[in-house]
Structures are given as C-alpha cells and as structure tokens.
C-alpha cells in the first residue's frame, strides 16, 4: 500500500466506517441510558426544577466552593485551556470546516491558521501537563484506570499528528496526514464506549443535578 492509497482509504471508507460506528454507538449509548428511566418525584416540590437544571448547565462551569477553588486550580484551568484549544483545532481550522461541509452541507468562518496552530500547541502542552498531574497527584493516581490513559492518548494523537501534518514534519506528508485521519477514526470508534461520552452526557448530568436540587428549592 502506497502512502496515497493509505490516505485515500482512511479519508474515504475509513472515515465513513468510523463515523457510522460513532453515530450508531452514541445512539446505543443514549438508548442504554434512557431506557433505565427514573421514578417520578412524589414529594411536594418547591419548583419544577427545570429552570434550575438549565441554569446549572452554565453555572457548573465555575466553582461555588472556595476551598475546592483553591485546591483544584490546576485541574480547573488546565481543563478549560485544553478544551478550548481542542475546540479551536477541531472546529475552526479551514480544512476541517471543509470536511464538516461535505457531511453537513454547510460551513462556518475559519480562524487564521497561525491562531489554530498556536491553540494546538497550547492544547498539547496542557495535555502533557494533565498527564503528568494524573500520574503524580495521589488522588488522580488512585482513581486512574487503564481507560483514562487510553483516552488521553486518543485525544492527544490527533492533535500531534495534525500539527505534524501541517508543518510537514518528519515523514512524507501523505503518510502523516493519513495517520492523522486514522487517529481521528480511532477517536470516533472508541468515543461511544469510553468516558469520552462525557462531552455529550455532562450537559444532561448537570441538568439532572440542577433539576433535582431545584425541586427542593436549592439554588446553585
């Protein structure tokens, strides 16, 4: 298989298969979650909680606890920085928008490439710091299981290979670009079956958290 064959396969059938697995997997995931159901709350409620639920989706992005704010600064800031950097790299790079356009039928304005490049570098550095934190912090070390490291790698690889492809580093461009797309395929395939699902479920979790508190009249 030549570099060009490989590239053509991953960007064609490879990416399609991965996208299908991603969509079906996420559908299954939501089915698994919502088929369980939840009992109706029969207590006399102070409010429907719906508004509090939506409010919590936003407010939970910050901290209400002064102690936790002081002691989780790194996790908090690094989390924000890496997520924003990754968002920029995925959604605001011109070639990526072109791909979304072929899938979705519409596009959106891109950021200048040097800015996306900077965001990618910042995101990678932050991810390395996050990994270091995970293996050195006693709580994170205790909590971490194999999947946490696999998911870290699945997130890091597309950034790294994307950066290498853009700067034409080390290997032939077609190979690097092919590996970049392959790493995205892997991310998509593993996504529905790992903690990566938090990217979707966290909003609903926050909603339930705020809603259940709101029913009791607890404002977050």
């Amino acid at each position: 298989m030549t570099a060009v064959d490989f590239l053509l396969w991953v960007r064609g059938p490879g990416l399609t298969i991965a996208s299908i697995i991603f969509v079906l997997g996420m559908t299954l995931k939501f089915f698994e979650i919502f088929m369980l159901g939840r009992k109706k709350n029969l207590a006399e409620l102070r409010g429907s909680g719906v508004k509090e639920g939506f409010k919590t989706i936003v407010t939970r992005s910050g901290h209400v606890d002064t102690y936790s704010t002081r002691h989780t600064k790194f996790t908090h800031i690094a989390g924000w920085v890496f997520h924003i950097g990754m968002f920029i790299a995925i959604f605001l790079l011109a070639p990526h928008i072109e791909i979304f356009k072929t899938f979705l039928g519409f596009g959106w304005p891109a950021l200048p490439t040097p800015i996306v490049d900077l965001a990618t570098v910042i995101s990678m550095i932050t991810l390395l710091a996050i990994l270091f934190h995970r293996i050195t912090n006693p709580v994170l070390k205790y909590l971490s299981v194999g999947q946490d490291y696999v998911v870290w790698a699945l997130t890091f690889l597309p950034l790294l290979t994307g950066y290498m492809a853009y700067h034409h580093l080390f290997f032939r461009y077609e190979w690097v670009l092919g590996v970049h797309i392959l790493s995205v395929c892997l991310l998509l395939v593993f996504f529905p079956f790992t903690k990566l699902t938090h990217a979707f479920t966290l909003f609903i979790s926050r909603w339930y958290n705020g809603m259940m508190a709101g029913e009791k009249g607890v404002q977050q």
């Binding site: 369980l36 102690y67 989780t72 709580v139 909590l143 699902t197 339930y208």
Partner: peptide
C-alpha cells in the same frame, strides 16, 4: 437502584478528582 441519572453520571465521570477537595473526609 440504577436509573437514568446514575447511568448518565457514570458516563460523564472523567476521573478528574475534583470531588475529593469538596469532601471533609478526604481533606
């Protein structure tokens, strides 16, 4: 005991460890 919120919560946890600093038994 496992219901929709429980499944959502487990699907959302990223093992970030922030809950530790909110718990007085940990602190």
């Amino acid at each position: 005991q496992i219901d929709t919120p429980i499944a959502l919560f487990f699907s959302s946890c990223t093992h970030c460890g922030m809950c530790a600093t909110a718990c007085l038994f940990y602190t």
